[in-house]
Every structure is written in C-alpha cells, then in structure tokens.
Amino acid sequence: MNEDETKKLRIKRGLGFALAAILVVIVILWVAPSVGIREGGKISLSRMQLLYGLVSTVIAVAIYIWGVGKWSRFEPPKNSAVSLSPKASNPAQTPATRSGQPVQPNAGAPAQTAGTPAAPKGGS
C-alpha cells in the first residue's frame, strides 16, 4: 500500500468519525425526551456518581481495547499488507510503526523474513 492509499484511508477514517459524531448527537437529541432529559430538568445522579460511572466505563473499555481490540498484542493488524511487507530500506523498523499503528509483538512478526516459519509463541 502506497502513501496515497494510506492518506485516503486516513481521510476515510476521519470522515467516518465525523459522521459518527453527528449521528451520536442526533440520536441523543432524539432519545433524550423519552429518558427524561429535558430543558430545566435535573440529572438525578450526583457528581460523584457520575464520576464513578465514567471512570468504571473508561476502565472497562480500556481493558477491552488493551486485551482484545486495537491495542492488543493478540489483535492482528487490520491492514495486513502494510504490516507484513518486508522493506529492505529500513529492516530495523517494525511494520506496525511504519503503518502508524501501535507495536504488536505477536501479530506482525516484524523481523521475520520470507520463507522462515513464524516463531512459536507457546500455547495453552
């Protein structure tokens, strides 16, 4: 994948994010009256309860992303072509960092050369 394609992918992601943000606002405005959120209304939770709920959610989501999702060592990179392609110009650089993604020690097998079987990770 060349730079143009990467750029296009980034623009696509940015647009997707913006669209999702707009959708969230619309959905919240649409749902708000049915869950009792209105002008002059009062949230029945105290600030500390909101803080607790927010911190709990953030922790659960962070564990998910770290263990299962994008930041996980065990989640294969979405863009396998970039992460797998061996580049002679800078062999020390890992494929994951080249594509702008976090380093994933297991998934990409960065230092592996063509024709060499992957090193076993162990197993259970």
């Binding site: 263990g67 989640e75 294969p76």
Partner: peptide, 16 residues
Amino acid sequence: NMKYAFQMRMKNLALA
C-alpha cells in the same frame, strides 16, 4: 500461534 492469540483475547474479554 492462532489458537494462543485467540485464547488470550478471550481471556482478556472475560476480564473486561
């Protein structure tokens, strides 16, 4: 490799 990675992801999912 595949089994190990999948099992680890499922363990982490249970933790989350």
